[in-house]
């Protein structure tokens, strides 16, 4: 029985993950019309100012939004973990986030801040101005779109770390004379530093790899996964798109390994999040 389950698992993994990876790797090492394997696609991407600029910009954008999303998630995570009023609802709302793809987030932000978005229409009706019209297509609008899926996921991850804190340690700090501020800065944050850093890296990794939101609303900044999509669908540059994909995957794996190293306990949570993405 165990052997049969292992065989099914191996076949599923092989077909679902191994085979596509092999195809992508093979495609990245091949140029149409040329025999044998070549690193030319990689050289092409790595020497291109346009692609590397987009890669750097994407990395920076995802890092900044992931940092902001993680910080924004802290109060929410605390609320959920401490079981305050409405914590269950808040947790459900954050978990619902996993069900939405990036495209859905993009559409939500467009509905809110697009040219005919709710906010733009309300602003025009109430104030007669159009400051928010089309805001979704700016870097700020893109950041709002990213924060929409980053913050709830960060909140769930950090809440798990807060739940693991020994409540007696917090009580001990209070009994020893710590004020709320001292409790936060001398006890809580130092203990949460590693899980928070791991959450930041996990969220940054997830953002680097997602392209649905960017595909809909990124106009002011070139998002690397969108470029891969365009190379593949728009220009039929399959080899180059595959090389770009491999480079992005290597970057994401490095980030994820760093996250796991920072907070070994967060492994399961990150894995769960990755599965749900």
């Amino acid at each position: 029985m165990r052997i049969a389950i292992l065989a099914i698992l191996a076949a599923t993994l092989g077909l679902g993950l191994g085979l596509p990876v092999v195809f992508v790797l093979a495609a990245s090492l091949h140029i149409d019309g040329q025999p044998g394997l070549t690193l030319e696609n990689y050289a092409d991407v790595l020497s291109s100012g346009y692609f590397m600029g987009a890669f750097g910009a994407t990395l920076l954008f995802c890092s900044v939004t992931a940092a902001a999303g993680t910080l924004l998630a802290l109060p929410c995570a605390w609320w959920i973990a401490r079981g305050r009023t409405g914590a269950r609802l808040l947790r459900v709302l954050c978990q619902v986030n996993f069900a939405f793809s990036g495209v859905v987030y993009g559409m939500l932000v467009v509905t809110l801040l697009g040219n005919a978005g709710v906010l733009a229409l309300a602003e025009a009706w109430l104030l007669g101005t159009d400051a928010t019209r089309g805001y979704v297509y700016t870097t700020g609008g893109l950041a709002i779109g990213y924060l929409g899926f980053q913050s709830p996921r960060a909140a769930i991850l950090i809440a798990q770390a807060v739940e693991r804190l020994d409540p007696q340690v917090l009580a001990a700090a209070r009994v020893l004379g710590a004020t709320s501020r001292q409790l936060a800065f001398l006890v809580l944050l130092p203990q949460l530093a590693r899980p928070v850093a791991a959450t930041f890296l996990a969220v940054a990794t997830m953002s680097m790899a997602s392209f649905g939101t960017a595909l809909l609303i990124a106009r002011s900044i070139e998002i690397f996964p969108v470029l891969i999509f365009r190379e593949f669908i728009g220009f039929g540059e399959i080899g180059r798109a595959a090389a770009m994909g491999v480079l992005l995957a290597v970057c994401c794996i490095a980030l994820e390994m760093a996250a796991r190293r920072l907070a070994p306990g967060a492994d399961a949570s990150v894995a769960r999040m990755e599965r749900n993405r």
Binding site: Q168, V169, A172
Partner: peptide, 10 residues
């Protein structure tokens, strides 16, 4: 206060 788990700051 000495807590049951000692509650030392790790």
């Amino acid at each position: 206060y000495v807590f049951q788990s000692h509650a030392l700051f790790p």
